[in-house]
Design a protein around this nucleic acid. Structure first.
Lengths: 187, 187
DNA sequence: CTTAAAACTAATCGATTGATTAGAAACAAA
DNA sequence: TTTGTTTCTAATCAATCGATTAGTTTTAAG
């Protein structure tokens, strides 16, 4: 007997994700979201509760998109070159349209630092740990490396992918390509 | 005949800079600034006009502080090792107290991306160009490098210092040290 | 049809934002 | 002391924020 929803929740989250990606959390208002999602504030509340939770759902969607890159990375884990391929895929993903939006996860890390919401922080940490595990797996492809070398190179890659995320928001593609190439000269 | 100001403008800018550094531009309200600066909103307006201009003045002050690092860098320009020393000095500066605030300039780049205020953007660009000039000077200390190598290494260092700025906001000192050491293994 | 449940529109809530105002207080020259 | 200028405090402005409400519309079961 009830009236049907006139929108698809998965579709409107996609729109919300785009707005948060472009503007960050604090600079995104519910009115901006309402406009881009094509539903009013009441419906946002009905489907997602509040702004914070909609942001979390947007991050989850973003995470599932990145997961496809991680899947390719996992399936093609043959050492350093595989890590480099992931760096390029990550940069390309961040530049997937005309906007310079960077990476939503790294943007969020930068916006909130260590004072991040608990659930958001958990999502970010989970992603970071999964990525580091893949880095580690590929670094260990060269069995001559000692544990200390692995540990240092892992920290190097972890911070480098963060820097790459920031760079995709403010630097041009040539600089980014030079950066990736140079990053892997050391490894 | 007039009444004297009961505060020193240079001192209250120092306080304002700290608030912006910790919270970013948008998350800093005039009431937070008023409280930390020890003067009321009217006085902020009287001395600095508006929030945007106070932010610009805070950035200028931050820039003068970084200028001391650049001065040391300039005076001790003997090649790659000098660049590395600057990286360490930059990381230490960003961690100068108990807070994890990162670098105000890089935080601002991340917060506004390419849609930054004109004057703020000019200040950032000016700083970035000055820094790149110093990188270039030290890279060219090794006269065997061709121009293309210099250009690639310059982009590498430019993006790496950005990544370091982000890292000082969210990573621990061990990871940062590993990152710097690894970064200079390639050069 | 009638009816009940859910989704819709539009208006509005209190709180907070950046900015401004009115009026009191301070202070040195006249 | 009087006067004129500036700084100060405290209150308040319109705009916007996230969130919510009241009331209408849609829909399908009965």
């Amino acid at each position: 007997m009830p009236r049907e929803k006139q929108y698809n929740e998965a579709e409107v989250i996609e729109s919300a994700m785009g707005v948060f990606w472009q503007n960050g959390y604090k600079s995104t208002s519910l009115r901006m979201l309402s406009k881009e999602m094509g539903i009013n504030q009441f419906s946002i509340n009905a489907s997602f509760g509040n702004k914070q939770n909609l942001f979390l759902e947007s991050l989850k969607l973003y995470r599932t998109k990145l997961q496809q890159l991680l899947k390719t990375f996992e399936e093609n884990s043959n050492g350093i070159e595989s890590i480099k391929n992931f760096f390029y895929a990550f940069a390309e993903f961040s530049n997937q349209n005309e906007y310079k939006r960077g990476c939503l996860i790294i943007n969020t890390m930068s916006e909130f630092g260590l004072e991040v919401d608990k659930e958001v922080g958990a999502l970010i940490s989970n992603y970071a740990e999964q990525l580091k595990a893949l880095f580690k797996k590929n670094l260990e492809f060269n069995t001559t490396k000692d544990n200390d070398t692995i540990k240092r190179q892992l920290n190097y890659l972890d911070l480098a992918i963060g820097g790459l995320g920031l760079a995709t928001k403010v630097k041009d593609n040539t600089a980014i390509e030079d950066y990736i190439e140079m990053t892997f000269n050391n490894l």
